[in-house]
Amino acid sequence: MSDAVARLGAGAIALAETVGALAMFTTRVARAALRPRLDRFETWRMLYRVGVESLPIVATTALFAGAIAVVQTGANVVKFRAYEVVGWAFGFSVFREIGPLLVGLMFSGRVGANNTAQLSTMQVTEQVDALRALAIDPIEYLVLPRVLSMVLMMTTLAVIGNAFALVGGIATSWAMLGVDPWVFWNSFAEYVTLTDFANGVIKAAAFGLAISLVSCHFGLAVRGGALGVGRAVNSSVVASAISIFVLDYFITWILK
């Protein structure tokens, strides 16, 4: 019993430490962002890499998210013969909720995890110390370009993802429910508002910010060799997932 309590306490302390370290890291990044001296080359490189890394996976995920949304509402659509509103139901749930959520999780798995792996490898092989020895601020040189690229790319990918989700939704409801693509499109275009669309994009941008900060923090905070790198990646994707859900909840609440 006392052992369980002790473990619970240790867990709570570890959680508080992580949250605190993350907050301090965020402050450091914010302070560096106030007087931005972005390394232009590194920023371009990161933008390109993040985009190339994540586009195929985000497109695939969005395509499937669209299809899944239709498959799961399919039963009710058939039951209530509500073929005219498939497009609307689809657009509302995918654009606002399922799309950004799944895209965010996949982005975290692909780009966030990779970023942590890369930064932590640099850390354990003392490359980060080498930067500091050369009087280069790792936050400015490594972190800022990554944060900027991930936020920009996540926002862009949310828009592109929506297009892919739409394709997936239309194709599935045509193949599975026999809904004519034009009927789908009309109900989609009529009911799905710019607010729904903006809602999703705002979420995506927030997820991008959270993923970039979390993945950079865990990358630079790594301890130990090869196993340490693996552990850092593990913590990074877990913390990213939690922040995605928490942010999602509050943004949903605020934007209604």
Partner: peptide, 22 residues
């Protein structure tokens, strides 16, 4: 080395997540 472990870990999340969605 550690780079390989990082790559393997990343690949595991991506492949497993995609498999779940598909």
């Amino acid at each position: 080395g550690s780079e390989g472990v990082g790559r393997a870990t990343t690949q595991a999340v991506v492949s497993a997540s995609l498999a779940v969605i598909v």
